[in-house]
């Protein structure tokens, strides 16, 4: 079981079977059925909107101001990071 049941509704979009588009988020493959999904919608679906995070999109840093104009496509690779304890 990859996700806690509490989040199952949020992740239904990952399980669409019609014409799925595959992207990679933090190394995990995710499938999308919707026609177009912007980075902004992805962030909302991942419940990251209230977090302090940064995104690398296909190897390049992407600023928050460009999220809404960026639409995900097949094979995209995203790294989404936060600050954690470290020395």
């Amino acid at each position: 079981m990859l996700y806690d049941k509490r989040y199952s509704n949020k992740f239904k979009f990952f399980n669409c079977k019609n014409n799925p588009m595959k992207i990679y988020v933090n190394g995990q493959q995710k499938s999308f059925g919707s026609n177009e999904i912007s980075l902004t919608s992805l962030i909302e679906k991942l419940a990251l909107n209230e977090k302090k995070f940064a995104i690398e999109y296909n190897g390049e840093i992407i600023s928050k101001s460009n999220f809404s104009q960026t639409f995900l496509k097949e094979g995209d690779k995203l790294e989404i990071v936060i600050a954690v304890g470290g020395g």
Binding site: L2, Y3, D4, R6, Y7, K10, F11, V25, N26, G27, Q28, L46, A47, L48, N49, E50, K51, K52, F53, E79, I80, V81, I82, A83, V84, G85, G86, G87
Partner: peptide, 20 residues
């Protein structure tokens, strides 16, 4: 103070506490 940068857990609790 030093902090590390790591992948966020996907599917985390929105109310999860953050170091910062």
């Amino acid at each position: 103070v030093t902090v590390a940068i790591r992948r966020t857990n996907i599917g985390q609790d929105i109310k999860e506490e953050s170091l910062l």
